[in-house]
């Protein structure tokens, strides 16, 4: 069985576009003290993320992947699998225990785990955007839709009121938020509409990387479908490197071409998304796919 995985990994490596924009290497996040033995006591094969040796939780370990411009990579797994931990580390919300995440900025490579907090926040303004599952994490509820978009714009130095208005209305139009709602407080918006505003805000400074954390979880099915359509067309329009984290295979299927499966903090399988859905190899993936198809 191991051989099959190796073979498939080889396929992926061959298919991967060499010009990566985001490259994550051996990312690990452990809560509590750890050493090799403690790490080895956890993972998919041990069926736990919590070490029986000292109780430390290995939320993510040895996570590596690359994403090219214009590509969307999916990370799928159940809650507690470590997928959101990976995303939060990339977003700068969590500090990883080990590993690197390199973003290619022009001719410079920047390891976002390595930079000063101020520069990391700066990167969040114009290079790496996040769309959270809960819009209240990404938006200020007592600020208008336009004002929420004005925040990253002014942080990037925009100082012209009319131009900020024009940019905000352009973004809201592209995310299909009615323009007559632009000056309403986000608090007054429905869940789906809030998510569209959050996406508009995330795109404000044309970031090169966008991280989506369960972007449609919690929305009604029809609303979710609309938001997914929107994300897909935006990803096609822009040369964004996207990472989409979801427990929901339909989201992964719709948005991504490649994906990783995480289980107890480890990547257990990686493949082209359609291949993975048709022919899952790892028993855990098989279980997930079967559940999704049921």
């Amino acid at each position: 069985m191991n051989d099959t995985f190796t073979e498939r990994r080889y396929d992926i490596a061959r298919l991967a576009i060499p010009e990566w924009l985001l490259k994550v290497e051996r990312l690990g996040k452990v809560y509590g003290p750890y050493d090799d033995e403690i790490i080895a006591s956890t993972g998919s094969e041990r069926d736990t993320a919590k070490s029986s040796i000292n109780g430390s939780v290995v939320a993510a370990w040895d996570v590596s992947f690359e994403v090219a411009p214009g590509e969307a990579l999916g990370i799928v797994g159940e809650s507690g699998s470590g997928k959101t931990t990976v995303l939060r580390c990339l977003a700068g919300d969590f500090t990883p225990s080990t590993g690197s995440a390199t973003i290619r900025l022009g001719s410079d490579d920047v390891n976002i785990f390595d930079v000063e907090p101020a520069q990391r926040r700066r990167l969040r303004v114009d290079t790496v955007s996040v769309v959270y599952q809960d819009p209240s994490e990404g938006l200020k509820m007592n600020v208008t839709a336009g004002g929420n978009i004005a925040e990253p714009l002014t942080a990037a130095g925009w100082r012209n009121f009319s131009k900020i208005r024009a940019r905000a209305s352009d973004l809201l139009a592209r995310t299909e938020v009615p323009l007559n709602r632009m000056d309403d407080l986000v608090r007054a918006f429905s869940g789906g509409m809030r998510q569209r505003v959050q996406i508009a805000k995330a795109l404000a400074n044309s970031p090169s990387v966008v991280l989506f954390d369960e972007p449609t979880t919690g929305l009604d099915a029809s609303v979710a479908a609309g938001v997914l359509d929107l994300i897909r067309s935006l990803l096609e329009e822009h040369r964004i490197a996207a990472v989409v984290v979801s427990h929901d295979f339909s989201v992964i299927e719709m948005l991504t071409s490649r994906c990783l499966v995480m289980h107890h903090g480890r990547i257990v399988e990686s493949a082209l998304t359609d291949q993975l859905l048709e022919d899952p190899h790892h028993p855990y993936t098989q279980r997930l796919v079967a559940a999704a198809r049921a």
């Binding site: 208008t144 336009g146 004002g147 929420n148 925040e151 002014t154 009121f161 900020i164 000056d183």
Partner: peptide, 13 residues
């Protein structure tokens, strides 16, 4: 930026 947002909001409102 949050000061600028508050000015933006003020002007809009």
């Amino acid at each position: 930026s949050r000061m600028w947002v508050s000015l933006y909001e003020d002007k809009v409102r």
